[in-house]
């Protein structure tokens, strides 16, 4: 039964018809770019001597944090919805009763969901690049390489968070639980763990350390914070991560959560 393309289209249909999810994701991705650049522009207009233009190299760097978090959250929402919507709506039983392979049922959610997510990420990226150039105010603008690296980082970040959200939601059979856990991890958990120097180089395995390594301008020696042995005696807390290692870690997260979601979908009683 070679039904892969229609099944991917069906997954995309289920997601794109969720108006609330679509608007919320768009608001997060495009809104974060507009909000960051709007605030930076206001600062610049209020005191141009103190605050540089919203665009240019400086603005490009400043807007990455909020844009990254917003893109990750949107990816988690879309992924978790894709992973749990069949089970939560009760439709999974009807799909399983068609005799279609359950592994295929689980795997087609990935391209189906990415069809929903990636255009939104590209829209956000387009807005950010436009803002970087339009609001540069005569300051230097990022190179083509930096723009490409940024695009690669954004897509990797999106795919990672989408697949983790999808796999966890399928595993837990709940969108709400998966979103709750992953938002907590993205906004707080990973950031705290990344700064605990006791973990040393094990922190390379953190998804946020790995994705941050892919940001334009990041180097193998990543400074995660400061390590203080006594008051006033602090040194930068550095871990060493190559791009290859970061990509391997990201791939590991994607593979582990995908396998978990597929296993659950294939073995659960319907």
């Amino acid at each position: 039964m070679n039904r892969v393309i229609p099944m991917i289209n069906a997954e995309w249909l289920k997601l794109r018809k969720r108006r609330g999810l679509t608007w919320l994701s768009l608001l997060l991705i495009a809104g974060s770019v507009l909000l960051t650049n709007g605030i930076l522009t206001l600062y610049h207009l209020s005191d141009s001597a103190k605050y540089g233009p919203a665009g240019g190299v400086g603005g490009f760097s400043n807007s990455q944090t909020l844009f990254g978090i917003a893109a990750a959250l949107a990816a988690i929402l879309i992924g978790a919805t894709a992973g749990a919507q069949d089970v939560e709506s009760g439709v999974f039983r009807s799909l399983a009763a068609t005799g279609q392979s359950r592994v295929r049922l689980a795997l087609v959610r990935i391209p189906g969901g990415l069809l929903q997510l990636i255009p939104m990420l590209l829209l956000g990226y387009g807005l950010e690049v436009a803002a970087v150039f339009l609001l540069a105010g005569g300051t230097p603008t990022p190179s083509a390489t930096d723009l490409l690296v940024e695009l690669g980082w954004l897509l990797t970040l999106g795919v990672l968070n989408f697949t983790v959200g999808l796999g966890l939601a399928a595993l837990l059979r709940s969108r709400a639980f998966a979103v709750g856990i992953l938002v907590a991890w993205e906004l707080a958990g990973s950031r705290v763990i990344d700064r605990l120097s006791d973990f040393g180089n094990w922190r390379v395995l953190s998804s946020t350390v790995a994705t941050d390594r892919l940001l334009p301008g990041a180097s193998n020696a990543m400074t995660l914070g400061r390590e203080c042995t006594a008051p006033g005696a602090c040194t930068p807390d550095i871990v060493t991560v190559s791009i290859a290692a970061a990509l391997l870690v990201i791939l590991g997260w994607i593979v582990v959560f995908t396998i978990a979601g597929v296993w659950r979908t294939a073995t659960q009683e319907a």
């Binding site: 039964m1 039904r3 709506s89 009807s94 799909l95």
Partner: peptide, 26 residues
């Protein structure tokens, strides 16, 4: 087959719900 009460994606139309299943069939 319909097992227990028939369940659907409530945010989709009746026709779209059938498309979801027919995509798996032929």
């Amino acid at each position: 087959a319909v097992v227990e009460e028939p369940r659907f994606h409530d945010h989709l139309s009746g026709r779209e719900n059938l498309r979801i299943v027919s995509a798996l069939l032929s």
